[in-house]
Structure formats: C-alpha cells, structure tokens
C-alpha cells in the first residue's frame, strides 16, 4: 500500500506534531545504530577480546621507546648489546653461547647416531665427578663421536645401498621365473 504524501501533510498540519514525529523517527534510527554498537561490544566482551588491546600504564612505561644518542630504543647502551646471550643446558647445567646451544644439546642429550649410547654410558660412569668437568668432557667427546660416527657411517651407507638392490635383483630373478 502506497500512501500519498499529501495525506501525511494533511494530517500533520500542526508543526509541533510533525517535529515530534520526526524526532521519534530520528530516535528510532539512532537507537538502531546504538544497538549495533552495543552488539559489537557485547560480542567482543563475550569472546574476550574487548580489553585485549588495553595495557596497564606500568607496562606502557616499561616499553616506552627511548630516543637518545648512543642508546637503542630500549634504552640499552650499544656495548651492552654485544654481550653474547647465554643459554643454560637443561642436561648438564652449563651455560653456553646461544649459537652453540643447539649443537651442544644434540651431543649432550645424545640425539641421533650412536653418540646417544656413548653419552648415556659416560653420564652413568662419571656421576661422581664435578658437574663442570663432566659437561666439558661430555661436550668434547660428543664432538669426536660425531666425527667418528660420520666416518663409521660411510661404509654402512654403502652396505645399505647394496642391500636393497641385491634384494631387488633377487626378487626380479624370482618373479622372472
């Protein structure tokens, strides 16, 4: 049903009535927008990301960017930066340079190859010794093991390579018949 505009104008000859109606419609539209905002906020709070971008002023102070000569943005002097980062090995409690940590861990914990067997043996045999020397030995022996392991592996590989091909040829022979 289409209402001719004249009918509304006739009915609303009174200005105050007209402005009243206009205001109600305006408030309706505004309420709809408010409801939209409220829905958004309510959803955010229910899902728990409403206050996620807010941090306490204490933390803000901690991460304030410092703009001074000779200091980086965290306010640390340049010389301090050169200090190497140390990691503590969870296995032997030694502190190592971060760049050496991964190779050390591999040897110390005996990951891979036959070093694991030797490492665990060594740990078992040298429990009476001091921690530091124990770790040192462990690390060094690991190095030699690794090299030895490498050398030992070469002939093994060859054998492995020969193995399957030999089996394969047997198979073909069998199936060929």
């Amino acid at each position: 049903m289409v209402i001719p505009s004249g009918s509304i104008n006739q009915l609303t000859s009174d200005d105050s009535v007209m402005s009243n109606i206009v205001l109600t419609i305006y408030n309706d539209i505004l309420d709809e927008i408010l409801l939209g905002v409220c829905f958004e906020i309510h959803r955010a709070s229910k899902l728990g990301f409403l206050f996620i971008d807010e941090s306490s002023p204490k933390e803000d102070e901690k991460y304030v960017i410092i703009d001074e000569r000779g200091l980086d943005i965290f306010g640390q002097a340049h010389t301090q930066m050169k200090k190497q980062f140390d990691c503590t090995c969870p296995n032997c409690q030694r502190s190592l340079a971060a760049s050496r940590f991964a190779p050390h861990l591999e040897k110390c914990m005996g990951m891979g190859r036959n070093s694991s067997r030797i490492a665990s043996k060594r740990i078992a045999s040298s429990t009476g010794k001091t921690n530091d020397s124990d770790g040192e030995e462990c690390d060094n022996s690991g190095d030699t093991d690794w090299n030895l392991g490498n050398d030992n592996r070469k002939p093994k590989k060859r054998k492995e390579k020969n193995g399957p091909s030999g089996v394969g040829s047997n198979f073909t022979k069998k199936w060929g018949k």
Binding site: I3, S5, I8, L11, V17, I21, D28
Partner: peptide, 28 residues
C-alpha cells in the same frame, strides 16, 4: 492514537521508498 497513526504512516513511507536506509547510512 492519531499521532501514532501518522507516525506509523510516515515510518511506512520511509521504509517503502528506501529512504530510511538512506537516512540510517547518512547518520552512520
């Protein structure tokens, strides 16, 4: 009641002509 009727008519007119959405977008 008379005013309510006029309001309803005005509302209906705005809805039908799509002006209400237009107004809402403008306000937004």
């Amino acid at each position: 009641p008379v005013n309510e009727e006029v309001r309803a008519k005005a509302h209906q007119k705005l809805e039908e002509t799509g002006k209400r959405d237009e107004l809402k977008r403008l306000l937004q």
